[in-house]
């Protein structure tokens, strides 16, 4: 395993200088504050006692925005390699199928009655 032996003694220099990298740190703080605000909005909206379909829609939209911020910025998905996007596309398709299963089950019930 000479390749790995070479790797362990070789420290690649980062693509960015420390000064450039530090500039990106501010975006983490911005996302952190945004996530806290969105959590507050989620809880606040729940006290409005909206009708259930609207409440579910609003809560899931806010949760999706929060998830997007975490995945995009904290997990660096905004700037990733194609192979990860490919894995996630497949995952999303299967996840969607899983979420559709309850509806398909209901259809099956209708068919059998």
């Amino acid at each position: 395993m000479t390749e790995t032996a070479q790797e362990s003694s070789h420290h690649e220099s980062p693509h960015e200088s420390p000064a450039e990298f530090k500039k990106h740190l501010s975006r983490y703080y911005v996302v952190f504050v945004a996530l806290l605000c969105l959590t507050g909005i989620t809880v606040g909206v729940s006290y409005l006692k909206l009708n259930r379909p609207l409440a579910i829609t609003v809560a899931l939209i806010i949760a999706s925005i929060k998830a997007g911020l975490v995945a995009g910025v904290f997990m660096h998905l905004l700037d990733e390699k194609k192979v990860i996007y490919a894995v996630l596309l497949l995952t999303a398709l299967f996840f969607l199928l899983l979420m559709l299963l309850p509806s398909l089950t209901i259809l099956e019930v209708f068919k059998s009655t």
Partner: peptide, 22 residues
């Protein structure tokens, strides 16, 4: 380890409204 940890956070982001608020 961070990717895993953020995923755990991400799951909670959906669990919280789905279980507690809706």
């Amino acid at each position: 380890a961070g990717l895993y940890w953020h995923f755990v956070d991400l799951v909670w982001i959906f669990l919280f409204p789905c279980l507690y608020l809706l």
